[in-house]
Simulated assay, not measured.
Amino acid sequence: MPSKASEALWYPFDANWYRAEYGAIMDALLSFSDHELEQWYKVEGASSGHSPNRYFNEEWYRVNCSEAAEAITNGTCVSGFEHYCNGGYKSFSPHYLFSERYYLQRYPDISEQNLQAGGFVNGYDHFLRSGDKEKRSGHLFFDPNVYMQNRPTDPNLNSLTPFMNLLHSAHTLPNSITLSDHFNPAWYRALSPDAVMAVEYGFAPNVLYHFLSTFTPDRF
């Protein structure tokens, strides 16, 4: 298995995505070259909680990986992404709709031996490069077949595989469509006014994210 996180599809900094994601709140970023923008991310953006690309959700990782949060607090790492690249990728989840543990347990054929033979860094790397094309699911709350049935038609995105299609769509899309049989956004909006408010005020990108961030079985 490749030992370097830098060999994974989820690793490279994406300057175009970064401008689109953060340019609205920091106008100066729009004038930076790709190299300048990457350097700015490393010096300022990473420690500020910015994600380096669409594949890794820095906020989600910090909240859901206590080991990373502790490393940031004690200065061992400047960001969740650094922690993930330094070994967190072996077991922790980088995105709210991908679980490393779920993926490897659901598909026994994706063994460590097969990952190594295929040149994949981890399960997430396999999912992004191969599993998504095969319409495998990386999370209980993301069913590729359900998603493709419900997604809006967009000529610019129609050729993309299910998860890639979602990643290239608006963050708010899960507010209005069902991604799996396990979550109905209309039901949750009616049940949880706090979720609606969190999305409206920018504390959560969508109600599914809010649900997964706050879920405890005894709430329902």
Rank of each mutant, 00 (worst) to 15 (best):
Y147F: 15
T178E: 14
S169D: 10
N150G: 12
P174D: 06
S176W: 01
L166K: 01
N156K: 12
T172H: 09
L160A: 09
P144A: 07
M164G: 13
N150Q: 14
D154S: 12
S180D: 04
S169Y: 02
L157I: 03
T172Y: 03
T153M: 11
P185C: 10
N175G: 08
L160Y: 04
N156M: 05
P155W: 09
T161E: 13
D143I: 03
H168C: 04
V146N: 02
S180G: 03
N156F: 03
F163C: 08
N184L: 07
V146K: 13
N165P: 01
W187Y: 12
T178N: 14
N165G: 06
Y147W: 06
T172N: 07
N184Q: 08
R189M: 15
L173D: 07
H182Y: 10
Y188W: 03
P185G: 12
P162G: 10
T153I: 11
N150L: 06
S169C: 12
D154F: 01
S169P: 09
M164S: 13
L173S: 11
F183M: 05
A170P: 02
N145V: 12
L167V: 00
N165R: 07
V146T: 15
W187P: 00
S159D: 13
S180P: 05
T172K: 08
M148H: 08
N175Y: 01
N165S: 13
T161F: 02
P185N: 09
N158E: 14
P185D: 08
D154E: 11
S159G: 12
H168S: 09
P144V: 11
V146W: 00
P144Q: 10
T178L: 10
R189A: 15
D143T: 09
D154W: 04
